[in-house]
Design a protein around this nucleic acid. Structure first.
Lengths: 231, 231
DNA sequence: GCGACGTTTCGATCGCGATGGAAGCATCAG
DNA sequence: CTGATGCTTCCATCGCGATCGAAACGTCGC
């Protein structure tokens, strides 16, 4: 019984404390590709024992950052929704701010910085250039940080196989600029960003690298991608 | 010496830990009105002794969330920039998500929910309606979460006394949708949002309540405000 | 039924960090 | 100079939470 005395303003601290533990932070980052992982896999990702991970996971559930689904003897954990993902991404951006002599930019990072998943949409330099290109060719309008769909864009995305009618019925915003962790410039998020990546994955033009957020783009995928960006 | 072994991904945890302490969180919230406060005032805001506060403040400085300026025998602390403010606001939104039987909505809250400062721009129901109104009358374009300036908007804001040329020279985006903590809908941020509030404050149409984020709107201020929203 | 596996709960240990007393510095008033 | 004020540094105490062994629970395969 702690009583927490008074609630003046939102208790940021409680929420921040959830992400203040290295193991829990790693768990959140591991789930940022939008997939659901088992408790055991997350224990490994966090570098802790299964017991410890279990404790962390239940705290993240209680805090509303994760959702869980039982399936047989496995329990699949995933990020609860776009809000939670956005919080993690915001933290990622700011925590990379001051390099303090950051040396690493190995070849393995290179792929990750080119194309990766950010929760449910394309990120990395390809994600950034996607937003740039769509703005340049008039499918989207606005400046870097504020985007909206144009009439031409409706045509473009419909041609690409995106069901815009279905997206508009959802509460989630169509376009959204999400600050890119590695590029430090915005990429395309929102339901359209998610729908585009879905198409790429469904058609096999892009596939996930085994256990990471890295995306692998086929030549056909690159062709389709350029088709969207150029026009 | 802790060595931190490896750096796989940004170390969110270290940044989150800064905000995980109740005293530090209160300090950040106290500074969300954009003013600079002394160490002593912040100690009181955090509910801790001056020694303890000093320790917290230096940690927040090291973490890049605060900036400090010495002036005589006082040290004035302020939030380091828009990024840090945005992080705190993001946390506020998400930490208010699940009400868990939240009962409080007292009269003192009412004023705060009507008009308050969010770092450097207008927030609360007036901030939300400002964005809505400017979108409706065509000064801004886009949907709720993605806004851009229109030709008509350039006229409107210039007439209101905003130096758009100066704003455009800055790196900061002109318009930005900032999710409102109390309304759960976006209000107008970015350099235009900041410039508008500046005008209101400079002219005395709006003034700050003594030691809080609450804003007090004069009848003249309300008239000017309606002039912007209606048109 | 049995054992193997994935996961959670319980319990005890242990270390990090928040805390405030005391002292040290700097600035200001006189 | 002296004394007061604002802030920081040093230091010892202390409590919370992260951790993992051991055990319990639930599911799968046989």
């Amino acid at each position: 019984m702690t009583l927490t005395t008074d609630i003046s303003g939102p208790n940021i601290a409680r929420l921040a404390a959830l992400l203040a533990d290295p193991a829990r932070a790693q768990v959140m980052l591991a789930l940022m590709d939008g997939r659901a992982l088992t408790a055991g896999e997350l224990a490994q990702a966090g570098g802790v024992s299964p017991q410890t991970a279990s404790s962390h996971l239940s705290k993240l559930i209680d805090g509303g950052l994760l959702a869980v689904a039982s399936q047989g003897r496995h329990r699949y954990y995933r990020i609860s929704g776009p809000d939670a993902a956005h919080l993690v991404e915001t933290l990622s951006v700011l925590s990379e701010e001051e390099p303090t002599a950051r040396i690493r930019t190995g070849p393995r990072d290179a792929k990750l910085r080119t194309a990766r998943i950010c929760y449910d949409h394309l990120a990395g330099s390809m994600g950034v250039r996607l937003l740039d290109g769509l703005l340049a060719n008039g499918a989207l309008a606005g400046d870097d940080s504020n985007v909206r769909l144009t009439a031409k864009g409706e045509q473009v995305f419909s041609d690409f196989g995106v069901d815009l009618g279905a997206l508009k019925r959802k509460k989630r915003p169509l376009c959204r600029a999400c600050l890119d962790w590695s590029e430090r410039r915005p990429h395309l998020a929102g339901s359209i960003g998610a729908a585009l990546l879905d198409r790429f994955l469904d058609e096999g033009w892009i596939r996930r690298e085994k256990g990471s957020r890295t995306l692998i783009v086929s030549t056909e995928g690159l062709r389709r991608y350029e088709g969207l960006v150029r026009r």
